[in-house]
Write a protein that binds this DNA or RNA. Structure first.
Lengths: 118, 118
DNA sequence: TAGACACTGAACTACATGGTTCAGCATTTA
DNA sequence: TAAATGCTGAACCATGTAGTTCAGTGTCTA
């Protein structure tokens, strides 16, 4: 069984970097939707919305299925898991760095006021 | 208290969509670094690395400070907090949807193979 | 069966991105 | 003070993106 090896983070973060696409994800979190209904909701041509959906699909964030003449979009299986992992891991790095550097920064501030005082 | 200093998610997700820049963040998680040392590490011209750092800086993920002729980069204060929040909130949406739709999805997979030629 | 509807694809515009080179400028250092 | 170092900015190139219009194709529905 070939489980979708989640596409590289490049694709999903790029997909998330657009407010319209984040909006689409938000929307699909509430209910599945056709391309047309999404295009309406975001005031955009059908063709334009189709491109956004394709970006989301390539990133594995959305899957689509065409039934009759309607293509229905829903959230994808990969479910932001890899993205959440990367972010969480690095958020900890950020915090660790700040703890380590807080002293240095306050030192720096002393020196600054030192200078301006002289 | 929501601090709205943090630049829009557009910028930070776009910044994260490049492997080099994720590598830089990774690197800065270990130690601060000059532009030159980062350029060396990622085998890139100084100018190229400078652009990446600027992208990270605009996204609030990195701050830099020039002392003498050396510009030192370190992780920024915003610390991926807003990004983590967005992702976590929506990851829950994904899961909720799957719980509700598991049966339908397995049906879909049958039809998907029908359709994947397009 | 005719017309409306939902999508698809090609082509185009305008602009952003990732990378380069080259020519500087300012700061160290020998 | 001359040379090396570290960064900066302009300019260029190839490619990608966000959006459009227009001309289809296939599917419903009256």
């Amino acid at each position: 069984m070939v489980q979708h090896l989640s596409p590289p983070l490049d694709l999903s973060f790029a997909a998330l970097s657009d407010a319209t696409r984040r909006g689409v994800i938000d929307q699909l979190g509430r209910a599945d939707a056709s391309i047309t209904s999404l295009a309406d909701k975001f005031q955009m041509t059908l063709t334009g919305m189709k491109k956004h959906v394709q970006v989301l699909e390539r990133a594995g964030l959305v899957v689509t299925q065409k039934v009759g003449r309607v293509r229905t979009c829903r959230l994808g299986r990969s479910g932001l898991r890899a993205e959440a992992e990367w972010i969480e891991a690095h958020r900890k790095l950020f915090e660790a760095r700040f703890d380590a550097l807080d002293e240095i920064i306050s030192e720096m501030k002393l020196e600054e006021s030192d200078e301006s005082a002289s």
